[in-house]
């Protein structure tokens, strides 16, 4: 599904990713963990195509195509989804409009007709129930006045409606209380499938109790310092990041 090779990325002239190599096969869930400043969010943003990141070396292929050559909206239409760490508020653009515009952009890209309004609303309502979101949120501005937890649930709602091939969730667990974390995890788990890959970017092991990954990678100073199965996350929890950063130094 996704193949990252020797990726070097600079932000404001400073190298953040220093030769990152990572492969995410189709149907797997991978967790990318790491201490603050290790480059986790940079990785997520680069994959989604956020401006301001200078790629100096390396390649990223998504389903055999050069991902870095695609504009952000093309990546989205191809099925790449970024769940934002800090979802932005956009007053004046309502949630349901954005959802529909996003779905139709992807459908048009695939040569499909626009979604039927009634079927669409039925689907959105069903997903909202899953995320325990009140229906009134649909007619509000995107994330407008939402609490931190509501914003994160809204990200997952968008993901559930868009059904991406590859979802990158950037610190989706941060700022969530335990109930919200369970709701979010449940939402994510319903999307797990043999055709879909998920990348969970997280600082803490806690999320992985609820979304169990197939593989865990530890990112240290811009490189994958260690990979393993889910037990690696537990070991990290026990021993702290110093264990890996010390080794990587």
């Amino acid at each position: 599904m996704l193949k990252i090779e020797n990726l070097h990325v600079k932000v404001d002239g400073k190298e953040i990713l220093k030769g990152l190599t990572l492969a995410i096969p189709t149907g797997e869930v991978h967790a990318v963990m790491g201490p603050n400043g290790s480059g986790k969010s940079t990785l997520a943003n680069v994959l989604a195509g956020r401006p301001g990141y200078e790629i100096t070396a390396g390649s990223v292929t998504f389903q055999g195509r050069d991902l870095l050559g695609l504009a952000p909206e093309e990546r989205a239409r191809e099925g790449v989804f970024l769940g934002f760490q800090y979802p932005v508020e956009i007053p004046g653009v309502n949630n349901v409009y954005l959802l529909k515009a996003a779905v139709n952009a992807a459908r048009k890209h695939r040569g499909l007709e626009e979604v039927d309004a009634f079927e669409f609303l039925t689907l959105v309502r069903e997903k909202m129930r899953l995320m325990r979101m009140e229906e009134s949120m649909l007619s509000r501005g995107v994330n407008e006045g939402f609490s931190g937890g509501e914003k994160k649930r809204n990200e997952i709602l968008q993901m559930l409606v868009l059904e991406p091939r590859l979802a990158i969730l950037d610190e989706t667990d941060s700022g969530l209380d335990i109930d919200a974390l369970k709701i979010v995890a449940h939402g994510v788990n319903t999307l797990r499938s043999p055709e879909r890959s998920l990348v969970l970017v997280t600082h803490y092991q806690r999320l992985l109790d609820y979304i169990v990954p197939d593989h865990v990678h530890v990112l240290v100073r811009g490189r994958i310092a260690r990979s393993g199965d889910k037990s690696l996350a537990l070991e990290l929890e026990r021993r702290g990041y110093d264990w890996v950063t010390g080794e990587a130094a």
Binding site: R50, P72, E73, I90, G92, A101, Q158, L162
Partner: peptide, 30 residues
């Protein structure tokens, strides 16, 4: 236009033209 808002809309698959118009629209909605 706010770059973060713009990127958010692009990351959902909206074209830059539509995203910009949408944000202008939202601006006047106040």
């Amino acid at each position: 236009l706010d770059e973060d808002m713009l990127f958010y809309l692009l990351s959902r698959g909206l074209s830059p033209e539509v995203a910009q118009r949408l944000l202008k629209w939202a601006f006047l909605e106040d």
